[in-house]
Design a protein around this nucleic acid. Structure first.
Length: 421
RNA sequence: GUGGCCGUAGCUCAGUUGGUCAGAGCGCCGCGUUGUGGUCGCGGAUGUCGGGGGUUCGAAUCCCCUCGGUCACCCCA
């Protein structure tokens, strides 16, 4: 007899089982309700795309540069599992050209080959929205507010909105050059590991956590001081909208975000309840050049992604979003052969009443224990006596209640309909 | 990719300087109540002590390798 080690879920992935999975259902329902009410429609797109679709979001970024799960399929196509949610939606927009503004939402797994740690997985899950086709800053306000309200609806209170503007692409280019020069002059003061970024991603030097870099860049030029009139006006309007709708904002000029496609507004919703290094619950911004880079007409867009695992971690920390109760309302206990359990449980479900039962002809004691654990409020008991009488004993399972009444078999479903109403 | 810590039943863990060390609680199953749950009592099942190699008379306990988990860096949701 030989046995290989038991299989486990791959590194960085996990199974979500009940009752935890009921929290996922609750969070997805909450999100769907909120975004649908704002006019966003669900988009289901493939889990994998031509790898070029993702490369357009920035080859210099780690997400597409070195963390992608990519492979060549049997038809020699180079494809990749989606590392994030925006590019596939943008590609779908370019392909189908829906009327604008096009407002879409999604819920999807995302794949990134990185070392897992708290709040970071190789397969994680995101919900998000994309609003494509309008440059209106009020749309930025809408998107940010939807994200904020989603977290609030889940019961999260310790959330901070960080806001920044990257300006237009021209602003960004101009600022990047200026910053690069400024950083070059102080190269020696930066942390060793951050020096290479001066040439490649100067703005990310400002995002560094290293103390030396932090200290040396305290008075670095800020992009928000270098915005064009156009970008400045846009940013002002966004802030005014957020203020008007009672959304507290923390301006964070160092907020860069890792994906290269962002322009104008960028934002994060960060949990202060999480002790972990990964506390960003929602991250997003404008990407006014992305559609064009995917072969579409110049089209502005804005959106965000929100990590489900992280949001749930924050819910744990704030003791929010407890697992909802199961849907089983009634448990059929049958010690008279099992036909009643078989037929009645199905009859009940067809009448809209959640019903569960035991299998394997177990003892009444065992069936009652199972009934108690099932979360059902009522046990329907069919023993030999009930079989003879054509009745069902209806017994409450709530707390100390031990009330039990005999109801004619033919009237049980109607009786329960009233009882559970 | 780099580094720290950890790896004993389904879960949470105890196992003193290597010598009945394979255990506890919870959970699960059964019985007390041959027709009735949640409390209580009694009993029971489940472990390649992550895996491989080494040291030793003897290793869950020491060494090496490896896999996995976890946290941090990095990056990001």
């Amino acid at each position: 007899m030989s046995s290989s080690p038991p299989f486990k879920a791959p590194v960085g992935t996990r199974d979500v089982l009940p009752p935890e999975s009921r929290r996922w259902e609750a969070m997805l329902t909450t999100f769907a309700t909120i975004v649908e009410a704002a006019g966003y429609g669900l988009v289901q797109s493939p889990l994998f795309e031509d790898i070029e679709v993702f490369r357009r979001i920035g080859e210099g970024t780690d997400v597409v540069g070195k963390e992608m799960y990519d492979f060549v399929d049997r038809g020699q196509r180079h494809v990749a599992l989606r590392p994030e949610g925006t590019a596939p939606v943008a590609r779908a927009f370019v392909q189908h050209r829906p009327a604008t503004p096009w407002k879409a939402w999604y819920a999807t797994p995302c794949f990134r080959y990185e070392r897992p740690q708290a709040g970071r997985y190789r397969q994680h899950h995101q919900v998000g929205v994309e609003a494509i086709g309008s440059p209106d800053p009020d749309l930025d306000v809408e998107v940010i507010t939807v994200g904020r309200d989603h977290l609030a609806a889940l019961g999260l209170r310790r959330v901070t909105l960080l806001l920044n503007s990257m300006g237009t692409r021209a602003d960004r280019t101009r600022y990047t050059e200026a910053l690069r020069g400024w950083l070059e002059d102080r190269r020696g003061h930066l942390a060793e590991e951050d020096r290479d970024k001066i040439a490649t991603h100067p703005m990310r030097v400002l995002d560094s956590k290293r103390p030396a870099t932090r200290a040396a860049t305290g008075d670095a030029p800020r992009i928000t001081d270098h915005l064009s009139d156009e970008a400045g006006a846009h940013f002002e309007r966004v802030q005014a909208g957020l203020a008007s709708t009672g959304t507290d904002v923390v301006l964070e000029p160092r907020l860069v975000r890792g994906l290269d496609y962002y322009t104008h507004t960028t934002f994060e919703l960060v949990s202060s309840a999480l002790e972990t290094a990964q506390s960003t619950l929602v991250g997003g911004g404008r990407y006014d050049g992305l559609i064009e880079s995917l072969g579409g007409p110049p089209t502005p867009g804005i959106g965000f992604g929100s990590g489900i695992e992280r949001v749930l971690l924050a819910c744990d920390a704030e003791e929010a979003l407890p697992a909802p109760e199961g849907a089983v309302q009634v448990f059929v206990v049958d010690v008279a052969g099992g036909e009643a359990a078989r037929d009645l449980s199905i009859e009940l479900r067809r009448a809209g009443i959640g019903a569960e039962r035991a299998f394997d002809a177990r003892s009444m004691r065992a069936q009652m224990k199972a009934a108690d654990r099932s979360g059902a409020r009522v046990a329907l008991i069919i023993g030999e006596q009930e079989e003879v009488d054509g009745t069902v004993a209806v017994r409450s399972l709530l707390g100390d209640e031990r009330s039990q009444v005999a109801v004619p078999r033919q009237k049980v479903v109607a009786h329960l309909g009233e009882l559970l109403a």
